[in-house]
Design a protein around this nucleic acid. Sequence first.
DNA 1: GTACTGATTGTTTGT
DNA 2: ACAAACAATCAGTAC
Length: 101
Amino acid sequence: MPKETKTKRATKPRGEKKKKDPNAPKRGLSAYMFFAQEQRDNVREENPGISFGQVGKVLGERWKALNDKQRTPYETKAQEDKKRYEDEKASYNADAEEESG
DNA sequence: GTACTGATTGTTTGT
DNA sequence: ACAAACAATCAGTAC
């Protein structure tokens, strides 16, 4: 059992707005992202003609409905993508340093 | 070192 | 191009 910090989500104005970097390394996709990529087609099949937002809803409901095992294939993808992101950061930081001078 | 915030990713339909 | 809803995750911030 890994350390589980209390990830509380309180709407408290703390800190200033984030700064957008010029070469901001886009973050890797999330398990949910890959999940939607496939479901998006399936969901529409089962729900042909659904309204805007509905798709997203069903997606979320189904997503949670999945088990850790089902998410595995998606979580894995997310990890692979993560690696991608890590690389970008490398380049991002590399350039950032050069920028300095 | 922790708790919290903002940003980011992908998709749907419709104007 | 943007809107809302869904969920996940990192990076930066403040004390």
